[in-house]
């Protein structure tokens, strides 16, 4: 398996790119990204409904990344900063796409994969129930996430979460998540 960050990143840069970043995911970075994307959405004169959805989903995507990033594999430690992640926000004719990528320890892959598959198998009502159940029954983790982020993203977008885990070495995989927000909202 020849995974290359550069190829992965280049592949993500199609369509109309609002913002692309690879590097350390910090609070300052999150603030900058949110400001930038918010003003671009204003420029595009999207209806407030679409603007809010994109913004909301972006907040969750970034904070998921922020809270769950693992250390870099040894091979990359001298090449990239710590807390390394990739973010690309782009737009084609019909949809916004928010792509995030980060290294994840292999022992966490089965749990995360199972979680996303479970979310993707849910319809709207089931997602609502799942959201409410987690909200009401699970304690906040120290990281603050509480496991609601992906459920919220799936619920707000109404689209399936597209993901891949590319094996990198014995200890790490690269986790890619593509989230799509329809420009004209689907009637549910």
């Amino acid at each position: 398996m020849n995974f290359s960050i550069e190829d992965y990143y280049a592949d993500r840069l199609d369509g109309d790119v609002l913002l692309a970043y690879k590097g350390s995911i910090t609070t300052d970075l999150i603030n900058n990204v949110l400001d930038t994307v918010e003003s671009k959405l204003q420029d595009f004169q999207e209806p407030s409904k679409v603007r809010k959805k994109v913004y909301n989903v972006l907040v969750e995507s970034l904070q998921n990344l922020y809270h769950h990033i693992d250390d870099l594999p040894e091979e990359y430690k001298d090449r990239f900063e710590s807390r390394f992640g990739i973010l690309v926000v782009s737009k084609d004719k019909k949809q916004y796409r928010i792509s995030t990528g980060n290294f994840i320890r292999n022992d966490k892959v089965p749990y995360l994969k199972e979680k996303i598959d479970k979310i993707n198998a849910c319809d709207r009502e089931e997602l609502k129930d799942m959201y409410k159940f987690i909200l009401n029954h699970q304690k906040l983790s120290e990281k603050g996430g509480g496991g609601l982020g992906l459920v919220d993203i799936a619920r707000k977008t109404g689209n399936k979460l597209k993901y891949s885990f590319v094996p990198f070495n014995d200890d790490y995989s690269f986790f890619n998540l593509d989230v799509f927000i329809d420009e004209v909202e689907k009637n549910s």
Partner: peptide
């Protein structure tokens, strides 16, 4: 106007 899922538990 917006709240994230981390806030949603605190709001509860």
């Amino acid at each position: 106007e917006y709240f994230n899922t981390s806030s949603s538990k605190c709001i509860l």
